[in-house]
Amino acid sequence: MLALDAAAYASPWRRRHPAEKALLALGLLGCALLLPPWPGAALVGVTAAVALLGPAALPPRLLARAARTPLLFILTGSVPMLVAVSGPTSVRWAPDGVATAGATAGRAAAALLCLLLFAATTPLADVLPRLHRIGVPTAVTEVAALIYRMLFLLLDSVHAVRQAQAARLGYRTWASTYRSLAGQAGAVFLRAFSLARRLEEGLALRGYTGSLAVRTEVRRPSAAFLATTVLLLAALVLATRMLVVTG
């Protein structure tokens, strides 16, 4: 299982309605994008981190592991903003480079924490069956649900094939590495089509008519949680405005 999905299943917020978590995480994401990076994105980032480590009880080590690679991308991606080029040989430090890079990195880091707040508390299996309520065609949500179910089996196959190849010195040279990678992709392709064929046969035997509807637990969003979220978002916007005005 993927670490974020496993964390979502283990989260104390697992039983909360996805709409509650979507309002909180996407509301914070909207604030991170639309408010000034300083102090808006900083406040949003701290709020998302507190929610993740506090009520959502995400282990700090897992948060660090999940955020490590995207943060590395964000930081290294800010480097080109530090320089200005006016010709093939004319490169200088950009006058506002540090401010632009800092603002972009800050905004992106805060937005990343908001994304993690949703991803680490809401299993995709809870989200996909509800997507048709916001206008996504049923055929697309069902294909997405099938992808979700199959990809874990395929990832297991990739790991198993890789281990077997490594045990047989399949990654010793460049040529053998390419052959092994092609073998992995080929094995996954065959496994994917074999899964599809077996599903097809199994469903046909059960009178498949084209619908893959699954039962979703009937839950009502908590009015208290939604109201608290709206108040929190309003407070963040007000606090940012006040800090901007007072300089």
């Binding site: 080109p80 649900a145 992808i147 990809l151 395929l154 990739v158 992709a185 996954v188 392709f189």
Partner: peptide, 20 residues
Amino acid sequence: GASGAFTFVLSALKIPSVTG
């Protein structure tokens, strides 16, 4: 569904790069 899962697994191998 099988094709989408195959595409996900294919693109899951990644190498860190610069520029965000």
